[in-house]
Design a protein around this nucleic acid. Structure first.
Lengths: 205, 205
DNA sequence: GCCTTAAGATAGTAATCAGTCACTATCTAA
DNA sequence: TTAGATAGTGACTGATTACTATCTTAAGGC
């Protein structure tokens, strides 16, 4: 976060800055723990000024989640480009997602933020939309891989997609809570082959 | 939660009740969202009375997490008894854990409660202890399975343990957020074979 | 160099929260 | 029956919160 001294910004620029600050702080403390005062402090602004740009705090989170969704989907789209085959695409998505989380830890914190998602149906719908969209993407790649004969034909693709997402979540928990010694990228490289073997099953590598 | 009319409890009994209520409410709203007022209401008590039995709110969470840890470990211990082999034990643990989460949803909510774990080092240490203990248990089973020649010898057991925990987390997210149509148990039965294939690798089933 | 406009400051409000404290009601044991 | 112990009450405090008036001042077009 850079410090701007007495610089008055346009409404549009300030809105974007607020979203960035919200994403940044949510990555450190989770949505629940971030106050508008903290956001204002991070920008060298008074707390009341925030509400000139957003009607409510929840509106900030909605904007922040939308920003994250678009950024993540963009990153995944770029990662998949130039993939040799569906399974290679899957692996690229996996690593791209982990890189994104390393850069924006707000993502897992929002997915697991419990109460807020329970109470605000708009936020809940947004997060669900991201997850279902992501799952559909994985299922599509798995179906392509099946057609290409790269994975076993009896594979439950929805289960395999859940396992894919779980693999990412498991890694996040290992890093965030257990504080594993190996880096996330390093750990990830050990995990993916196990997953691959799982979905390939009897098919020769 | 049952309603007790004007029944005065011993300090010990009331403490246990507070822990139960805390676990119950944390499963519904997450640790962060539960207030001492809500706890008191659930027991037909005034809010101030809580603090005759616990010095601080965090002390309640510490007691609640300890209770959950012992209960979970007990359930896992029972589940593993009578397992035919290490991999069977792993599968029993998997299903027992999911059953436990279905009964006490507080567990995943606490693991992912972000801010509180960041700010309270005692809580954080407790949760980490649970996770590392659990991971050690899985690694042990995997090593036994390797010795028995049931899984591929080059398997990274720590990665496989992370994937095991991620499988559970992925299922929880699917149910809680996406609200998958299939039941968790049903979904679980589709997931585990994929995991098994992943760790068996080239070894014949 | 004004003058309008909109970003921001200042100083609130009402609600909610954990934790305190003096007191009261109830239980138990002699 | 009574006296001591203690679970529970009720009213409170101080801190924090999202959000809102009203005033101030900087920026940009003319």
């Amino acid at each position: 976060m850079e410090i701007k001294l007495k610089q008055r910004l346009s409404a549009e620029a300030r809105q974007e800055q607020i979203i960035q600050v919200a994403v940044d702080l949510a990555g450190k403390r989770g949505m629940q723990g971030v106050t508008t005062q903290e956001m204002a402090d991070a920008m060298g602004l008074t707390q009341g000024a925030i509400f000139r740009h957003f009607p409510t705090k929840d509106a900030i989170w909605i904007a922040a989640i939308n920003w994250l969704r678009e950024s993540l989907m963009g990153a995944l789209g770029v990662a998949v480009q130039g993939a040799r085959d569906p399974l290679d695409a899957l692996e690229r998505m996996f690593h791209a997602h982990l890189s994104f989380i390393a850069q924006y830890p707000a993502i897992p914190r929002i997915v697991f933020s419990g109460q807020m998602l329970d109470e605000n149906p708009v936020l809940r719908a947004l997060v669900r939309e991201i997850l279902t969209g992501y799952e559909a993407r994985i299922v599509m790649l798995l179906l392509q891989a099946r057609e290409a004969g790269m994975i076993r034909p009896d594979l439950d693709e929805h289960g395999a997609a859940t396992l894919f997402l779980g693999m990412i979540q498991g890694l996040v928990v290992q890093i965030k809570i257990v504080g594993v010694d190996r880096s996330m990228q390093e750990e990830a490289r050990k995990l993916f082959p196990i997953y691959l073997a799982g979905i390939k099953g009897g098919v020769a590598a």
